[in-house]
Design a protein around this nucleic acid. Sequence first.
RNA 1: CGGACCGUAGCGCAGCCUGGUAGCGCAUCAGACUGGGGGUCUGGGGGUCGUGGGUUCAAAUCCCGCCGGUCCGACCA
Length: 437
Amino acid sequence: MRMSRYFLPTLKENPAEAQIISHRLMLRAGLIRQSSAGIYSWLPFGYRALKKIETIIREEQDASGAQEMLMPTIQSADLWRKSGRYDDYGKEMLRIQDRHEREMLYGPTNEELITDIFANDIKSYKDLPKNLYHIQWKFRDEVRPRFGVMRGREFLMKDAYSFDLDQDGARRSYNKMFVAYLRTFARLGLKAIPLRANTGPIGGDMSHEFIILAETGESQVYCHKALLEVPTPENVDYDSDLEPLIHDWTMYYAAADEMHDATKCPVKPEDLVTARGIEVGHIFYFGTKYSEPMGAKVASPDGNTVTVHMGSYGIGVSRLVAAVIEASHDEVGIIWPESIAPFQISLINLKPGDATCDQLCSDLYHRIQQNNIDVLYDDRDERAGAKFADMDLIGLPWQIIVGPRGAKEGKVEVKKRASGARSEVSFDVALNQIIAK
RNA sequence: CGGACCGUAGCGCAGCCUGGUAGCGCAUCAGACUGGGGGUCUGGGGGUCGUGGGUUCAAAUCCCGCCGGUCCGACCA
């Protein structure tokens, strides 16, 4: 993409309303614009990042055996009356009426709808287990939206729902999601740790929050330092017994602020990590809480009718964009992990109009594109300083700088955003470096 | 939902207290000089001062309503 044609409005100054770093950088680097309180438009640059995250989540969900579908944003109030949540949910639920004055709502979550869909067509234990998910916009009318997309009212969420014959089955489904989440966050370049979460009246140990560590995180997290060294599962066979993997990740102490009691902490002070965290995912098993009232029953092998056991598994997709930025930035801008960078390369022409620079850039630009690598070519007639500032702000992993000095000898500078490491190399070497990576 | 505050050009703000020609910086446009980390100069465009009402000869400024937004607290992917 040529920057002269791209819609990428960057801001030199921090907008007054943005308090936290990710919000500031998302506005300044042209990822989002606020449309109304807690509701954002995603500009082309931000939308690319959002879609990349979505893709990684989708790949890992699919790998674990979950199946993607799509449910509507607008739901009927009747379903929610059936589960009893229509009255319980309170003002956080956006309620609307259609022209026939039927009561509708903008879905804050989808347990009712998915359970209804399941109950209508699945009648036998032979069709279990099932895990269905979708990636869809949700609306929760937060009293106080803030921190940009970190706590917006409208947000993109991946929510999966598992259906099993009994609790043992539900546990296997739960474990699959647990592992899929570990892999997803690792691929996003994030260090995520699972914290045991409150399971409410259901009890047991089947609810975890996934927290990523970031200095500006909202909540305080305490954990054993060994937890940070547990390796991400690779080449997972999701049909195998995942309990040992789960055990590796849950054997160490880990607690959020409200669960942590310094006087009762089992971890020795020298082994305790205290950090800030952002919740990016939450998984839990809730038994028959929804399947019971919604009538989700199947025939069991012995001929009886049993209510299915369910779990639900959420990832805040839009929040993750902010979380990644919180976790990966410096004083001048974003530092995108390669896996989700909107483009891989900034190609900077320091002197547009100079025949040699133009030619070299043009060649590089086309050759990079031919290799299916996303490149943002800064061909604008701007001051070098302004270009460098913009490039650092938008934070693409690689920068290729083409200036008149080197261009005469066919040399360009390749710089890595994350480390700042730079080297002056020939056209071909630059190209090969990029392609190899 | 309690408390505090803000709406003046695309962004950041001053002007309001003490009513009297709507300003500054950045951005933007034209031209020139420039050119390896947000450059300099000249000239230009852009504002129903959130909105409705009131007070007044006169309202961005004073008073009231409404709308929008922000922050602190309690609550959440």
